[in-house]
Nucleic acid binder design. Structure first.
Length: 118
DNA sequence: GTTATGACGGCAT
DNA sequence: TATGCCGCCATAA
């Protein structure tokens, strides 16, 4: 059914909306957050390309913190970086997002970073 | 039907 | 750290 595609999209959007400000998730991670449907990072990318209003699409990045969106529209990459910066997301000198501490659940995966760094 | 590419991810070198 | 390769699913040529 074609509705299945919209169904999956809705789930992806819901998962994206669940991402709090100042936090980011990778396409693959967002796909993992989606429950009730088998979604891959590719699909998330395709779906996020047509995300409606109210969806924090800027909080979705590549697994390495880069913005592949730039190939679609460099302006969006700049906008994304601006929105993330306003939310307090840390950026690296490489221009990438600091997934180490901004990734959703980072404190659960790399607690050491929050212990030594403080 | 095959090949190539894409808002991706992981592993090997 | 940087490159290269493959897997994944969907769309276009």
């Amino acid at each position: 059914m074609a509705d299945q595609e919209e169904r999956v999209a809705d789930l992806v959007y819901a998962a994206a909306r669940a991402v709090p400000a100042g936090r980011v998730v990778s396409y693959g991670q967002l796909a993992e957050l989606v429950e009730g449907a088998s979604v891959t990072a590719r699909q998330v990318g395709r779906i996020m390309a047509f995300c409606p209003q109210g969806v924090p699409w800027h909080r979705v990045l590549g697994a390495d913190g880069r913005m592949p969106i730039a190939k679609r529209d460099p302006a969006l990459a700049a906008l994304q970086r601006e929105l993330l910066a306003r939310e307090g997301v840390a950026f690296l000198t490489d221009g990438r997002v600091d997934m180490r501490q901004c990734r959703l659940g980072a404190e659960l995966e790399q607690p050491a970073l929050f212990e030594s760094e403080g």
